[in-house]
Design a protein around this nucleic acid. Sequence first.
DNA 1: TCTGGGGTCCTAGGACCC
DNA 2: TCTGGGGTCCTAGGACCC
Length: 421
Amino acid sequence: MIALVDCNNFYVSCERIFNPLLKDKPVVVLSNNDGCVIARSEEAKQIGIEMGAPVFMMKEILIKHKVQVFSSNYTLYGDLSERVHKLLETFTQQIENYSIDEAFLDFSAIKQKNLYEYGVQIKSKIQQCVGIPVTVGIAPTKTLAKMANRYAKKNQNQTGVYLLDTQEKIRQVLTWTAIADVWGIGDRHSRRLTGMGIHTAADFVDKLPADWIRKNMTVTGERMLNELKGIPSVQWEEMMKPKKGICTARSFGRLLSDKKDIREALANYAASCATKLREQQSCGGTLHIFIQTNIHRTLDKQYSRSITLQLPVPTNSSIEIIKHAFKGLDIIFKPGYNYKKTGVMVTDIVPDKAVQFSFFDTVNRQRDARIMKTVDLMNNRFGKDTVKLAAQGYSKKWKLRQERLSPCYTTNITQVLTIKI
DNA sequence: TCTGGGGTCCTAGGACCC
DNA sequence: TCTGGGGTCCTAGGACCC
């Protein structure tokens, strides 16, 4: 059996740990730049705030119901996520950290007979040690575990733990689950399927021939069908695989037209990509740089362009990646536009131990690697960007709007001390 | 005035090889 | 009337996830 442990309204729950007054009140957390709603408490869901809704369209309802609003604080959420995952590791050896707020646990080696009880133990342990409420769904496959989890969440009479261990229970939940809510069914497929009279997961299993699914929904659809029938078909990914693409891109807090400012933003995003590469001990061989105006401002002149640069030698040095990013920007930047966003994507990623050097290389790579290692060491100890390249600048005209940011309670010592005083 | 930021996998079709 | 039979690699685009 497989369990899916999912943190309830994760970002909101994180904010609540350190601010108990938020309990029982409608709370939302916003996307970068305070643009959209990306997490909602139960109370916020009930008054009709939709996932992904732009904040400026929700203003009235937010004020009317005195909704507590927070900018997203990924430093805080990341740290709490790590604590939850660490704790889960004490329950089973085989664990897949699926996302910031979810993990799959393989129960096949668990001795305890009563898996429902085991689920309850997990739930209370995380509540007690981290303070985050979670829901546990247990079933024979990942897809069914997802479904069991959702069932436990949506049914008030459930305890937050649901065990799908008999054919009758599986049947019941398949009938209860709308096709659009099946893991792996997105907007496109759900519209197509409901148009054909497939409304529930049970319809999908009963009414569609396997070869139709294979033909129209590729092998992914076929796997889903198996999973719903109780045959495990989705791969188990124990180890974190190194990323094949790394991207840092942000909308600016306001529109920018000065190339200097965009350069500075781009330098920071490039440095961030380089840091992520070093974290996973990789180097990137290809760089994609892009800039774009704000597509929502229909009256503005629009421009968007990207460029792909082949690096002479794969690298993870911030110095080099920033240099090449600037070269790309020089080619694609056009003056006279209001820019909204820029970004860097790195692909053709290889392990840093397997870099193919060039006979004609002019870069002192050993020296740069030592510099980067030292910079990382200092930044890990004293905080992000304690040491950075001059090109990353200080003006920060591009920086995010974060008007309602909570403190980094668990990672910033000075901040925490200040709060205590 | 204001609309997020990351990722993955799969397939079809083209270009090329012997 | 008949027009080979394997392969590989790459890219763009679609669909999905959180």
